[in-house]
Every structure is written in C-alpha cells, then in structure tokens.
C-alpha cells in the first residue's frame, strides 16, 4: 500500500536557492500582546511537498494567511512565487491556489457550477473552463453527480473537488490547510495520490495536517510550536536527529514542551 504513494527523493530543489518559490525571513505576526507567529524563517523549493505541522493554536493558519496575502505581516520578510507579501499580495494571489480547512466550495452549487465560477474568476476562458471542467469531472469520477448540489455529496468527494478547483488555474504553489480533516484513511490516501500527481508536474504543495502518516509523505516537514519553527527537515532526518521512532512521537514531544501543550495538561 505504502508504495503507491511514496516518491523518489526531493528533486534537488531545496539546495538550489534560486529555485525557491517561498522564502520567509523572520516573518512575524503580533495580535496585541500575543505573538501568533514569531520570526519564522524557511524556504520551500519548486515542486516540493512541504509539510507545515503544529498543534492547534501554534500559528499555522496565521502563517498561511500571511503567505497567501490575506493578512499583512507585523514584521519580517517573505516572498511567494517571486512576489513580496507586502507589496505584491494581489500578484501572489494570481499564482497560488488555496484550500482551507473550512470546506470552501459552495454547497448550494453543483460541481460543474463551482468549477465554472472559480475558473471564471481566475480568468480562464470559457472554452478552457468547459474542457477542464469535463476532464475534472471524469478523472474524479463525478460524472453521475455533476449536476447534484454539493451538499448532497460525501465530504471526501468534496475535498477532492476542492483540491482540483484550487489547482485548475495552474498555480505555482497550492496551500492546503488541513485538507483531509474528517475522512477515512482510504479517502485520505487517495487525496495524497492527487497531491503527488500534481507535485510530479512541478506544483509546489504547502500543506498543514494533524495526521502524522501524512507528515511522512512530505519531502520536508516543519513543526511549529508557540509561533516558532521548532524543527525543520526531511521526516527521516528529523526522527534521527531527535532519536524518536515516528513522526507522531516527535510531534508530541515538541508540542508538549510548548506552552500550548502544557495548557492542555
């Protein structure tokens, strides 16, 4: 089973800094007294599947919002797809796809209508939307429900559709914020097969998750604790560095050391 989703080693993107599609330097967001994101620095290479982990409240969503142009940083620098987050937020938006943890397609529209709407506002031509829409429906096996409103479809189908819609305009990077919450392992596995197929074609995937088996699928993983990046490397290297047997063990050890972890106990 595992073979079907594992990939070869990272395609040298990390070493080649000029090829980075995300660069963050001391990126910080302060809400009043609270430092939600505290001077994080990292880079993500083109075509990489980058896992962005952290306990609830560690600052992941805030960091993603800054990188996608939804939230202005308090300080620090970051560029996404070659554009600065301060001055080029709208240019960034043209070059990224986004799928949020709150399922974000329209429940009262059909799959085809959702495809048409998002294709339309990303500026795809009518003919393109038609062709891509048909192809998408076929690959996702949604032909029988293409005209059924989304609210009637199972969550796993909706998530796959949301991912496909998020990458339909062929962005350079796609941000996935807990994309597989609430579905069974098999459905998650299929979802990750889609992620890999897109990464093979050169798409950079920036993904947050709470499932540690998914963390193992990533080329590199960062773990945020209390707004800081506590660890960042390939899953295997991280386990070796910290002397743990699994990503789950590592995650729990790091998260428990943070304030958020202590609060919960």
């Amino acid at each position: 089973m595992t073979e079907s989703v594992t990939r070869g080693p990272i395609k040298g993107a990390v070493e080649n800094l000029t090829n980075n599609v995300i660069n963050a330097e001391g990126l910080t967001k302060v809400f009043g007294e609270f430092r939600a994101v505290d001077a994080i620095s990292f880079s993500v290479g083109a075509g990489e599947v980058f896992g962005f982990l952290g306990a609830n409240g560690a600052g992941k969503t805030t960091a993603i919002k800054m990188l996608t142009g939804l939230l202005a940083p308090s300080s620090g620098n970051a560029s996404v797809a070659g554009f600065d987050v301060y001055t080029g937020a709208e240019d960034i938006k043209r070059n990224i796809g986004y799928m949020s943890q709150r399922f974000s397609l329209y429940d009262d529209l059909t799959p085809l209508e959702n495809i048409r709407f998002f294709g339309g506002i990303y500026g795809l031509r009518r003919k393109e939307i038609k062709e891509k829409g048909r192809a998408l429906i076929d690959t996702l096996g949604l032909a029988s429900v293409a005209d059924v409103r989304l609210k009637a479809l199972p969550l796993g189908w909706k998530q796959k559709l949301a991912f496909s819609v998020a990458v339909m305009h062929e962005p350079r990077i796609v941000f996935l914020d807990e994309p597989t919450g609430g579905v069974d392992p098999l459905t998650r596995r299929r979802f990750w097969e889609m992620i890999y197929e897109s990464a093979e074609r050169g798409l950079t995937v920036f993904v947050t998750t709470h499932y540690m088996d998914e963390a193992e699928y990533c080329d590199r993983v960062s773990i945020m604790v209390d707004g800081r990046i506590a660890a960042l490397d390939t899953p295997l290297e991280l386990q070796r560095q910290f002397g743990v047997g699994s990503m789950e063990e590592l995650f729990i050890r790091l998260a428990r050391a943070g304030k958020g972890g202590r609060h919960e106990e």
Partner: peptide
C-alpha cells in the same frame, strides 16, 4: 459565516468586481 469569503479573498478578483 460559511468561510467562502476567504476562498474569494485569495483569488485575484478585484475589490470593485
């Protein structure tokens, strides 16, 4: 409320549009 506004806000759709 349903969260789709964020999805709209990450698109290049302009304010006036």
């Amino acid at each position: 409320e349903i969260g789709t506004i964020d999805q709209i806000n990450v698109t290049p759709l302009k304010r006036y549009q």
